[in-house]
């Protein structure tokens, strides 16, 4: 049943999507084809598909570790941005731009920045019992504005015609593409390792077991003496680290510089990926591929059929909506409650 809900939600999303296309005056079937199949029919399309799936899967893996323990990190977007900022800072200003250590240093900087950004809500939650949903979300806006300040002000490229963006990162600060014609690069191996680590942690490790007890039955966790604050810290730091690394890989991969639009919403979309993947490593891979396809398809029909760019977000929203609804109807049954019988009903009963 746990697998039925995402499948059902995907099918319903397609149906509602078709109705949606029809109402915009497009024949649904060719439009769906343009949305979901055409992007995957070229080498470049496949490269872009994996390129976009990679950060989604990476972030979702980190988030799911917290979600399993009922630690709700909604601020991966902010942690992603801070990771990109810190990594780019190292890449741009490190004394030796040709050093082979540059990329590993940027990796560490991105991870540390993401974790630091998540550590603030973790500290507030474990010490002052603040709500991590609100704090992580608000921290995202701070991160967005901080990035905007940097690229408009101190870090703006002097040779960039006043565009709000930094200079390009040096070559040693970039992941190598597999083929110069396509953008897919070696950072995807980070995601592969992350998926394995996530599986190992949640399915096999004692620490992951403790986290799942905290999530499924907090009183049982207290009964066994598992520390609640440990679950909060691990949950938020795992999400922060994953998002920070994803931000670093985005800056050091397809972008090569910072601009206000570092993230097309990966941090928020990854929340949906984690849930569609049922917080399970393998499921998250599938969920990430699906969500990446929504991004690609949205861009595709925007160009070929002149459909609005909001379409991607609409599809994401419909998918999440149906997933939650499907879960609800799978775990609860609706029962009609009849009103109390009146005297007349009693008569007939006799």
């Amino acid at each position: 049943m746990r697998i039925a809900a995402p499948v059902l939600a995907s099918v319903l999303t397609l149906i509602v999507g078709s109705i949606f296309f029809a109402s915009l005056g497009h024949d649904p079937l060719p439009t769906l084809y343009a949305f979901f199949v055409e992007p995957l029919s070229s080498m470049n399309g496949l490269s872009e598909w994996l390129l976009k799936a990679s950060p989604l899967i990476l972030i979702a893996c980190g988030l799911a570790i917290g979600f399993r323990a009922n630690v709700w990190n909604i601020g991966a977007e902010g942690q992603f941005i801070m990771g990109a900022v810190a990594a780019s800072g190292v890449g741009l200003f490190w004394s030796d731009p040709d050093s082979a250590l540059l990329l590993p240093l940027m990796f560490l900087a991105g991870m540390a920045a993401g974790m630091a950004w998540a550590a603030i809500p973790a500290f507030l939650r474990s010490r002052m019992n603040t709500n991590e949903i609100l704090v992580t979300l608000m921290m995202t806006y701070i991160a967005t504005l901080f990035l905007s300040y940097l690229v408009h002000g101190p870090w703006r490229d002097p040779a960039g015609f006043n565009y709000p963006q930094t200079a390009l990162l040096p070559a040693a600060a970039m992941f190598q593409s597999f083929d110069p014609a396509y953008r897919l690069n070696s950072s995807i191996f980070i995601t592969v390792v992350a998926v394995f680590l996530m599986w190992l942690f949640t399915d096999r490790s004692f620490l992951g077991y403790k986290m799942s007890v905290s999530g499924a039955a907090p009183l049982a966790a207290r009964y066994a003496g598992f520390r609640e604050s440990a679950a909060v810290w691990i949950g938020l730091l795992a999400g922060g680290a994953a998002a920070g690394i994803a931000g670093m890989a985005e800056a050091a991969g397809p972008l090569g510089q910072l601009s206000p639009q570092v993230s097309p919403g990966y941090g928020f979309a990854a929340i949906i990926v984690a849930f569609i993947g049922r917080l399970n490593a393998f499921g998250i891979v599938l969920g990430g591929l699906l969500m990446s396809l929504l991004f690609l398809g949205g861009e595709g029909v925007q160009m070929t059929l002149a459909l609005p760019s909001a379409l991607t977000r609409i599809f994401q929203g419909i998918l999440l909506f149906f997933l939650l609804a499907a879960d609800f109807f799978i775990f609860y049954r609706i029962r009609l409650v009849r009103p109390a019988p009146d005297a007349h009903a009693l008569e007939t009963a006799r």
């Binding site: 007890v213 009183l219 049982a220 009964y223």
Partner: peptide
């Protein structure tokens, strides 16, 4: 404990998982 489900055992977990508790 007096509450078996949710305190002495995690309801949705298997018995072997609850042994690890």
């Amino acid at each position: 404990p007096e509450e078996r489900l949710g305190r002495g055992a995690v309801p949705s977990h298997t018995l072997w998982e609850n042994a690890v508790l």
